[in-house]
Computed example of a mutant assay.
Amino acid sequence: MPSVFDLHHVVEQDEIDAQEHVHNLRYLQWTLWAARDHSASTGWDAAAELKRGFGWVVRQHEVTYRAAALVGDQLVIRTWISEKMRMAIRRKYLICRPADRMILARVQTRWVLADLRVRKAVSLPDEVYDRMVIPISTPTPPWS
């Protein structure tokens, strides 16, 4: 598993709210996409796991907004796993605008693997746990 993953995204008009910047919920959507794509890059087959009755579920989001994203901005959503436990992982994100070297938001999410048939968290299987790589040092913004 690559320890750091970058999702590239260009802000579209339909992501802009009444205050003429990106709506807060979009930031969370981008982190979900980055987590999905990072997991897929490791061989995690979400569709197959859903058929078996398993999926990742958010237990907690923590978001610190620092600057607004605007229509047309080219963003990088950088993600990595910062902690892994038998029943959960903590994933961190930097939402960045490389054009002016701005970190727009810092996010962390606690994820659990759930048996969706009984709606309960389960321990991570060894093969999933072992594939997760935690970076040796805290990742920097994409322009560093």
Score class of each variant (00 low, 15 high):
residue 118 V to T: 15
residue 3 S to I: 02
residue 1 M to F: 01
residue 122 V to A: 10
residue 79 T to M: 09
residue 112 V to S: 10
residue 34 A to K: 09
residue 55 G to T: 06
residue 92 K to Q: 05
residue 8 H to T: 14
residue 50 L to I: 11
residue 93 Y to W: 01
residue 40 A to T: 12
residue 30 W to P: 06
residue 3 S to M: 03
residue 61 H to R: 10
residue 142 P to Q: 08
residue 99 A to T: 02
residue 103 I to S: 05
residue 23 H to E: 04
residue 72 G to W: 02
residue 16 I to S: 09
residue 102 M to R: 01
residue 27 Y to E: 02
residue 63 V to R: 12
residue 90 R to W: 01
residue 65 Y to D: 08
residue 84 K to N: 05
residue 59 R to G: 09
residue 138 T to P: 06
residue 13 Q to W: 01
residue 134 I to N: 05
residue 34 A to D: 12
residue 96 C to V: 01
residue 50 L to H: 14
residue 44 W to V: 11
residue 48 A to N: 14
residue 42 T to Q: 13
residue 7 L to V: 06
residue 120 K to E: 15
residue 76 V to D: 14
residue 2 P to Y: 02
residue 124 L to S: 07
residue 103 I to G: 03
residue 131 R to F: 06
residue 126 D to S: 12
residue 138 T to I: 11
residue 118 V to A: 11
residue 63 V to M: 09
residue 99 A to F: 03
residue 64 T to D: 14
residue 100 D to P: 09
residue 50 L to Y: 14
residue 116 L to A: 13
residue 127 E to C: 12
residue 129 Y to W: 05
residue 58 V to T: 07
residue 127 E to T: 15
residue 67 A to Q: 10
residue 7 L to K: 00
residue 118 V to L: 04
residue 87 M to N: 09
residue 1 M to V: 01
residue 97 R to A: 04
residue 80 W to C: 10
residue 37 D to A: 03
residue 44 W to L: 11
residue 117 R to W: 02
residue 142 P to N: 12
residue 70 L to T: 07
residue 140 T to Q: 04
residue 115 D to L: 01
residue 94 L to M: 08
residue 22 V to D: 10
residue 138 T to R: 14
residue 133 V to W: 01
residue 140 T to F: 07
residue 144 S to R: 00
residue 10 V to R: 07
residue 103 I to R: 03
residue 100 D to E: 10
residue 62 E to R: 15
residue 77 I to W: 11
residue 131 R to P: 11
residue 111 W to M: 14
residue 53 G to K: 09
residue 93 Y to G: 01
residue 13 Q to N: 07
residue 134 I to Q: 10
residue 53 G to W: 09
residue 36 R to T: 13
residue 109 T to C: 02
residue 96 C to K: 00
residue 144 S to F: 08
residue 119 R to N: 14
residue 91 R to N: 13
residue 5 F to L: 04
residue 93 Y to V: 00
residue 60 Q to S: 12
residue 128 V to Q: 06
residue 131 R to S: 14
residue 113 L to Q: 11
residue 17 D to P: 07
residue 131 R to M: 10
residue 12 E to Y: 00
residue 95 I to C: 15
residue 111 W to E: 11
residue 63 V to T: 11
residue 38 H to S: 10
residue 125 P to A: 03
residue 56 W to D: 15
residue 133 V to E: 12
residue 142 P to L: 13
residue 131 R to I: 13
residue 105 A to I: 01
residue 29 Q to M: 01
residue 73 D to Q: 07
residue 19 Q to G: 05
residue 1 M to N: 03
residue 49 E to G: 03
residue 97 R to S: 04
residue 98 P to Q: 06
residue 97 R to D: 11
